[in-house]
Simulated scan of single mutants.
Amino acid sequence: MEDEPLVRWRWIGDHLGYLGGLTADHAVIALVPVLIALLIAVPLGLLCARHPRLYQPLAALFNVVYALPALAVFVVLIPYTGLATRATVMVPLTCYALAVLLPATVDGLRAVPESVRQAATALGYGPWHRLAAVELPASVPQLVAGVRVAAVSSISLAAVGALVGRGGLGYLFLDGFQRTFPTPVLAGIALVALLALVADLVLVAAGRLLAPWAGGGAR
């Protein structure tokens, strides 16, 4: 009797549409929270940079949220956001991304040399003009580095959402484990890794475009 192959390539070939749909769903569930977190983190980071006393309590709060087990948070949210809904998974992922992006924003703004700020002021830049034209562009490498970490983490964590009915590629892990069938599990691992790699490469390219002088925060 021949040994069972670890990967059934025919199964993968017969389910390309299914795999593509799960990958697209996974990308939305994982990356939209990062975008939402970025839209919140930038103005919040600006506020914290202007008022340093706000930063430590907010950072501590998001660090506590980041330490909470994802599955436990998903379960707690079910009565409010529903079972098998994107919101149940995306709300915690947004909070996790904020825990990464808020420090990245504040650190990026703090890293702007004081001499650069003084030079901009000497050229007649007001506070908001200096912020938009000098400080924010100078903080782009640090911010892009934070977005890369948040995106890859979110892509990984999103798979856990399958346990509450909405997890994109996480369904492949459940399917494989329940049927003792390794092919979906291996396909899911490969697709999660590929999605994370593609997202990271896109962010590196975006960072180089936005901040060519610093390599876009690639290092």
Results as ranks from 00 to 15, higher is better:
residue 111 A to Q: 11
residue 111 A to G: 15
residue 111 A to K: 10
residue 111 A to M: 07
residue 111 A to E: 14
residue 112 V to K: 12
residue 112 V to F: 09
residue 112 V to S: 11
residue 112 V to A: 09
residue 112 V to D: 08
residue 112 V to L: 13
residue 113 P to W: 15
residue 114 E to T: 12
residue 115 S to T: 15
residue 115 S to E: 14
residue 115 S to L: 07
residue 115 S to K: 13
residue 116 V to G: 00
residue 116 V to N: 05
residue 116 V to I: 11
residue 116 V to W: 11
residue 117 R to D: 13
residue 119 A to V: 10
residue 119 A to F: 00
residue 119 A to Q: 09
residue 119 A to K: 02
residue 120 A to I: 11
residue 120 A to C: 01
residue 121 T to I: 12
residue 121 T to S: 05
residue 121 T to A: 08
residue 122 A to D: 12
residue 122 A to H: 10
residue 123 L to C: 08
residue 123 L to F: 11
residue 123 L to E: 07
residue 123 L to S: 10
residue 123 L to D: 09
residue 124 G to R: 09
residue 124 G to W: 01
residue 124 G to Q: 08
residue 124 G to V: 08
residue 124 G to N: 09
residue 125 Y to A: 13
residue 125 Y to I: 03
residue 125 Y to N: 09
residue 125 Y to G: 03
residue 126 G to C: 00
residue 126 G to P: 12
residue 126 G to S: 10
residue 127 P to N: 09
residue 127 P to R: 09
residue 128 W to M: 14
residue 129 H to M: 02
residue 129 H to Y: 03
residue 129 H to I: 02
residue 129 H to T: 14
residue 129 H to G: 14
residue 129 H to Q: 15
residue 130 R to Q: 14
residue 130 R to K: 02
residue 130 R to N: 06
residue 131 L to H: 03
residue 132 A to N: 01
residue 133 A to D: 14
residue 133 A to H: 14
residue 133 A to W: 03
residue 133 A to E: 14
residue 133 A to V: 08
residue 133 A to G: 06
residue 134 V to Y: 08
residue 134 V to D: 00
residue 134 V to E: 08
residue 135 E to D: 12
residue 135 E to Y: 06
residue 135 E to H: 03
residue 135 E to Q: 10
residue 135 E to G: 04
residue 136 L to G: 00
residue 136 L to F: 13
residue 136 L to Y: 04
residue 136 L to P: 05
residue 136 L to R: 02
residue 137 P to N: 04
residue 138 A to C: 12
residue 138 A to V: 02
residue 138 A to D: 04
residue 139 S to Q: 10
residue 139 S to G: 06
residue 139 S to H: 11
residue 139 S to C: 00
residue 139 S to T: 10
residue 139 S to P: 05
residue 139 S to F: 05
residue 139 S to V: 07
residue 140 V to H: 02
residue 140 V to M: 14
residue 140 V to F: 10
residue 140 V to K: 06
residue 140 V to A: 13
residue 140 V to E: 02
residue 142 Q to M: 09
residue 142 Q to E: 04
residue 142 Q to S: 15
residue 142 Q to P: 01
residue 142 Q to V: 11
residue 142 Q to C: 04
residue 143 L to A: 03
residue 143 L to Y: 11
residue 143 L to S: 00
residue 143 L to E: 01
residue 143 L to V: 14
residue 143 L to G: 06
residue 144 V to I: 15
residue 144 V to C: 04
residue 145 A to I: 01
residue 146 G to H: 09
residue 146 G to D: 06
residue 147 V to P: 00
residue 147 V to C: 13
residue 148 R to P: 10
residue 148 R to E: 05
residue 148 R to I: 02
residue 148 R to F: 01
residue 148 R to W: 09
residue 149 V to I: 15
residue 149 V to N: 07
residue 149 V to D: 05
